[in-house]
Design a protein around this nucleic acid. Structure first.
Lengths: 357, 357
DNA sequence: CTGAAAGCGCTTACAG
DNA sequence: CTGAAAGCGCTTACAG
């Protein structure tokens, strides 16, 4: 006749210790004490069985494993984090714009961190978000490190350093600050694109930037302008906001008034390039790339669609994410490591919206 | 002459208690004991000052607040979670595909949860991900609740219920299971789209579904088929995978062989509809919508681009996310609440790729 | 309103 | 290899 089993999971220590082995408590998750009691070993022994590399006899391990399975025991990561000082959580701060443009980043981050059993506490920032407020929340969760795809002030960077929380920026360089970062070489990518357009004989350029507060767009714009400066060509700089709609309206402005008409649109992201392209072809019946070249930057999916086949620069997104994760994990393991900046070259996609020579 | 100040943050209790008020310890974050010592009050008093609604005298509060500020004290959310049983963390499980198609969801979730000071532990699943493994990690972090935009088995749903962890599905219905969910009415949205095409006189339909394991695509496909069944019209069902490229190739298959040629492509998402549209126009010089109608589903940004102006169904994404968050928070507050299913109607976007009558 | 004390569920020296 | 014990940084009855 089987003993009746009552579940007593998670009682306080004294009550639990006075409880027979075959009695447990339903409703609360079981703890290492519950497992210890059922397995007939000490709580420390249970703890050791869940610590990789700890020395436990085969016999003890077997008893603990079967008890743990019977009770559905999982170590409580919160308690573990409190005592060990390692939460196995990293804070990921990403602007909404970045996630909209590169939704692959988060999945890729998750994949890479998952291999190391690290989890992501996600913070998406919109333009109104107060980074200081977000950081306060990050501190509270005792994260092991931070990946930031958002703009920080020097003070905010220092705040992380003061707290000894490793920090790696994604696609922000902070050249004048010794903080780790992974970045695509936006400047050089855009510069070489423009060089190709010049070699192709383009003479009158429109450079359409993203939002002024985007360091990524700023770097790209600078690359374009630096290549054009001093040459006998026309150049107009326009401030866009990375959106399709605004690119359309800026293109209309240019085509409706400028004289001479431009023969090259250099857009600092793909979405704007597509807006520009659609407007030129549909509303102005422009011949692209014969009369007007259009180039973007990023390599979004739509750049490869039949209707577009955009000439642009591809960011090596997967390699960049991998580098960011590796750099952060290294610095979590060894906080003494010096900071490091890794710059990845983009690769040109030779599409049919611009001939580069 | 100012007293020399040495920082002693985070020493053990005894050492700390024997430490003069003006001495603290650099390098570790300060704790409520540090604040208590500097403020000259008990640790409990400090704790109360950070608990909304606790009764503390103005005098004590002032002392604590200034000490906390001086030490840069923030309550440790991990410790708080351990003792209170509330981590203020919710697990968000989202398939990579869902995040690629609707990157706004995460930002919207973050915004809504942030208002309640709840944070997101993010898990992105790809097709190879083992939901059981992900759930194990979720359990370990003692999350207060789960939002799932991914497919669960009944067993997995039960596992959440057994652990008393509130669970709300996003865009999955589970009609035969009493679990809470927020869903767009995919079936009815697609059905009414097809009804509009029928009223417009379309006679030969291609229904291009998404991956067979996508419950969203299945519901949409069923809605289309149900409306067409029994009517004197042609219908071909094709299995796509929600991607642009596969939609192109399926469209080529149909146009290269079918007889009679279809006059309506019903694609169960926008991305496939755009691939279909590009292929029809560019490779077959088809007149859309005169000879062939194309409709999608979702309302992605590109659907509104000048070149497309796609007829499709918009999901009320923001309202759906808000509903999911509200439902989850209600159930975290009150676990006794019965489950609830909320179904939101999509709204038709009347574009120029199909005339609906 | 306030403080002493117990306890959340773990990890980790420490002694055996 | 194993167990008893301290302690991570909090919250929350409890008594005053």
């Amino acid at each position: 006749m089987p003993t009746e089993v009552i579940y007593l999971k998670g009682m306080n220590k004294k009550a639990r210790d006075n409880t027979p082995q075959n009695i447990t408590f339903e409703g609360k998750r079981s703890t290492s004490y519950d497992v210890a009691r059922v397995a007939g070993v000490s709580q420390s022994a249970v703890s050791r069985c869940f610590k990789p590399g700890a020395s436990v006899s085969a016999k003890t391990r077997a008893k603990v494993e079967s008890a743990a399975k019977a009770l559905g025991y999982q170590p409580n990561a919160i308690a573990r984090g409190l005592i060990s000082g390692r939460s196995n959580i990293v804070g990921v701060l990403i602007t909404e714009l970045t996630n909209l443009n590169y939704p692959q980043i988060l999945a890729e981050l998750n994949r890479k961190f998952d291999e190391k059993n690290i989890h992501i506490l996600l913070f998406t920032l919109d333009s109104e978000s107060d980074v200081d407020k977000v950081l306060e929340k990050v501190w509270q969760y005792q994260v092991d490190g931070i990946i930031a795809a958002a703009q920080f002030t020097d003070t905010q960077i220092s705040a992380c350093q003061d707290r000894n929380i490793p920090l790696v920026f994604y696609n922000r360089l902070y050249p004048q600050n010794t903080v780790s970062s992974v970045c695509c070489d936006h400047y050089e990518g855009e510069r070489s694109l423009v060089e190709g357009l010049l070699n192709n004989g383009r003479k009158s350029f429109v450079v359409m930037s993203g939002p002024i507060d985007s360091s990524v767009s700023t770097a790209r714009t600078k690359g374009a302008v630096a290549q054009l400066k001093g040459l006998p060509v026309d150049m107009v700089e326009l401030e866009g906001d990375y959106s399709y709609e605004r690119a359309c309206s800026l293109t209309r402005d240019v085509m409706g008034s400028a004289n001479p008409k431009p023969d090259a649109f250099v857009c600092t992201n793909d979405i704007m390039a597509l807006g520009c392209l659609d407007t030129l072809r549909i509303e102005y019946r422009a011949k692209v790339p014969k009369d007007i070249s259009v180039v973007g930057f990023d390599g979004v999916d739509a750049a490869a669609w039949l209707n577009y086949d955009l000439t642009t620069v591809l960011q090596p997104l997967e390699r960049m994410v991998e580098a960011a994760v590796d750099m952060l994990l290294e610095r979590i393991e060894n906080p003494e490591l010096p900071s490091e900046k890794r710059l990845f070259a983009g690769s040109i996609r030779h599409g049919s919206t611009a001939q580069l020579d």
